[in-house]
Amino acid sequence: MVDAEELKALIRKKLEEGADAFLCLVDEEGSLVPALVTGADSPDLERIRVGGVRYPLAKILVELLREYPGRRFAVLARGCDERALVELAKLEQVDPDRVELVGLACTEEEARACGCPKPYPTRVDLGERAEPAPEREVIEEAEFLPDPERLRFWEEHFSRCIKCYGCRNVCPMCFCEDCALENPQLVEPGVVPPEFPSFHLIRALDMAGRCVDCGLCDEACPADIPLRSIYRRMQEVMEERFGYRPGEDPERRNPLSELGTEAEIKKIMGSGLEI
């Protein structure tokens, strides 16, 4: 278990080194909430906690960077937060020069509970690297079914959807001003559960080459729809076809947001460009 004192020392150090504020989690009457520590003598420092629940800190950071131009922020980032920040930087939502990471490795139990593919950031400042524990249970369950039954399998899951938009709202990779899920031509307003399968399919398509597999959507969903497995399958496709993993290489952009070269296309499409 990581000591809060260690983190406190790190926060003070970062603030001295030039960060204007530090984004982390503090204890507020028994529950953890995100907070911004702005000074070495801030009372929030006494309530700092390490570990516990997760928040889409990358998403909060995007708003902070927009709200306070020119300011520099430091953030306590787990593996998933780091991946989200890397991917958001490529999409020009985060200015990497204004963000510093303090890496927190998740514990063994946290990694297992999350089914995390990489439960630590590239640089670990706090904690010990745990073994990745990726899981494909739902994907395998769905893939095992023949076509019409798979459709029914998802229909059953999606019929529980109450269209709360929680999956989108919590997703660190969702930042569009105009969301396709609110476009009345694509998703009929006022219909619950939303049309099957377009609502969830649209989100799944947008997550291709983007989802950093943080699993917050699964945690947020009040209907227990295995959303993460759908997006994870999309990521498997991206890896099989394009060799691309979101959030890993800061230099390589999502192949779906670039035109690419003819050689690349030929490779993807196979010989003779036959489908």
Binding site: A142, R150, L201, L205, M234, V237, R241
Partner: peptide, 14 residues
């Protein structure tokens, strides 16, 4: 490129 992803997505949905 999109086609590859779209086809797999539809297939995964059943």
């Amino acid at each position: 490129k999109r086609f590859q992803v779209l086809r797999e997505a539809l297939k995964f949905m059943g």
